[in-house]
């Protein structure tokens, strides 16, 4: 059609131009700006006045008790809920990894907690866990397990447990489906061979199943850790970080600092600290991955 000359091929650049433009202006540019803001004392009410204060915000962060308690709960929340979601996902995936009648329906049902909007999930959980009219407390009372209602969202310790349980409920379907797909790609011959060799079910699980799904599992866990670490809507919608800040994670702390107290400079500093932690975590992951390749 056209004469073919060897020169720079613009085609891929043109094709990805809209995406690159959007990501640069709505993700990368704000990101750099956010990092800059973390060195300033910018206020929400006068966003044009950006007073550069060097490392002052970071020094303040180190002695900020609210920050350390938020950091601690963020870590606990992230890792406990990710590990529990993984274990539950693994259990469900193992149960589903066989011939099931109505497989599609089961999979669709399994996905429900994951696709339901966070607002809807938290509303129905709050309703179920209500101390006076909630069905969970009433049921436990009828069974004679408790005399007084459990304050699932008003007691600081119980609130922590509840938000973690909610996160597990909401995210385990993702884990289950990723693990299931990875289980189904294991060649059945391995199992047949091990049966002939006389391996038991437990041995098969630890020496065939787990090594075969290891790569996908690791990636799913890493993604989930990053999502849980940065996400705030689950907890915000359930407890707003309360009672007495017991469920306040770093993202909620940053949000409050920016939009209620109006210090967007310091709020950015908190977010930058989050980013530093996640970079550390990601470096660890890449090191593990690299070691695996070297082996």
């Amino acid at each position: 059609m056209k004469n073919k000359k060897r020169k720079t091929d613009f085609f891929p650049y043109l094709m990805s131009l809209p995406a690159i433009a959007a990501i640069s202006s709505v993700c990368l540019y704000p990101l750099l700006q956010g990092i800059y803001l973390s060195f300033t004392t910018t206020k929400l009410t006068s966003p044009d006045v950006m007073k550069f204060v060097g490392l002052n915000n970071f020094v303040r962060l180190l002695s900020d008790k609210s920050f350390w308690s938020a950091l601690w709960f963020t870590i606990v929340y992230t890792f406990v809920s990710t590990i529990m979601a993984y274990l539950m996902g693994l259990a469900v995936a193992l149960m589903m990894n066989r011939e099931i009648r109505g497989k599609n329906i089961v999979r669709a049902l399994l996905l429900i907690p994951w696709v339901v909007p966070a607002v809807v999930g938290t509303t129905s959980w709050t309703w179920m866990l209500n101390d006076q009219t909630g069905i969970v407390n009433n049921l436990l009372k009828q069974l004679g397990l408790i005399d007084k209602s459990i304050l699932f969202l008003a007691n600081p310790v119980m609130a922590k447990v509840t938000v973690i349980a909610f996160c597990v409920w909401k995210t385990f379907p993702f884990m289950a489906l990723v693990i299931l797909a990875s289980l189904q790609s294991i060649n059945a011959e391995y199992y047949d061979a091990s049966k002939i060799d006389g391996a038991g079910a437990l041995q098969r699980f630890f020496y065939i199943t787990m090594p075969m799904i290891r790569r996908e599992s690791l990636l799913a866990v890493v993604l989930m850790v990053m999502w849980n670490f940065n996400r705030m809507d689950f907890i915000y919608l359930m407890t707003q970080g309360g009672p007495v800040n017991s469920t306040r994670v770093m993202s909620i702390y940053s949000y409050y600092t920016a939009f209620f107290r109006g210090s967007i400079g310091y709020a950015s500093t908190i977010s930058v600290a989050m980013m530093v932690f996640m970079s550390g975590f990601l470096l660890l992951y890449f090191r593990i991955k690299k070691n695996e390749v070297d082996e």
């Binding site: 990101l31 996400r231 977010s271």
Partner: peptide, 26 residues
């Protein structure tokens, strides 16, 4: 570019949302 897409999952939303709020309000 491909690596960047994965890396973007790492950044806290607030770090982008705060400057974006500032820009959009301006």
């Amino acid at each position: 570019f491909s690596k960047l897409l994965l890396l973007l999952q790492m950044f806290p939303g607030m770090l982008m949302v705060i400057p974006l709020y500032r820009s959009f309000s301006v």
